[in-house]
Simulated scan of single mutants.
Amino acid sequence: MEALSRMISALVLNGRVSGYSIGPIGGGSMNISHLFFVDDSLFFCEANRNQVQVLKALLLCFEASSGLKVNLDKSKMVPVRSVQNLRQLANTLECKMASLPMTYLGLPLGAASRAASIWDIVIEKVERCLAGWKRMNLSKGERITLIKNTLSNLPTIANAKDISVEEVRVIAGGQIQWNINFSWAANDWEMDSIEALLSLLYSLQNKN
Rank of each mutant, 00 (worst) to 15 (best):
L4D: 02
M7V: 04
S9T: 15
A10Y: 06
L11Q: 14
L11E: 07
L11Y: 07
L13I: 05
G19H: 05
Y20K: 05
Y20Q: 02
S21I: 13
S33D: 01
H34G: 04
L35N: 03
D39G: 08
S41G: 02
L42S: 06
F44Q: 02
A47G: 14
N48T: 05
N50I: 11
V52C: 15
V54W: 04
L60V: 15
A64M: 08
S65Y: 00
V70P: 00
N71L: 11
L72D: 03
M77I: 15
P79N: 11
V80S: 08
S82T: 12
S82A: 13
V83M: 05
V83L: 11
N85Y: 07
R87M: 03
Q88E: 12
Q88L: 03
Q88V: 05
A90K: 04
N91D: 15
L93G: 00
E94K: 15
E94Q: 14
K96V: 02
M102V: 14
L105S: 07
G106I: 07
L107W: 07
P108S: 13
A111F: 06
A112T: 03
S113G: 02
R114K: 10
R114N: 13
W119R: 01
V122H: 12
I123W: 02
R128E: 12
C129M: 05
L130E: 04
A131Y: 00
K134I: 09
L138D: 01
S139V: 10
R143C: 07
I144W: 01
I144N: 12
T145N: 09
L146V: 08
I147H: 05
T150H: 06
L151D: 03
L151F: 00
S152P: 04
N153D: 02
L154K: 01
P155K: 08
A158P: 02
N159T: 15
A160W: 02
D162L: 08
D162H: 11
I163K: 09
I163W: 08
V165K: 02
V170C: 12
V170M: 12
A172E: 10
N179R: 15
I180M: 07
N181W: 02
S183R: 13
E190L: 10
M191H: 11
M191S: 07
L197K: 01
S199T: 10
S199Y: 00
L200V: 15
L201A: 06
S203V: 00
S203N: 13
L204I: 08
L204N: 11
Q205H: 13
N206S: 15
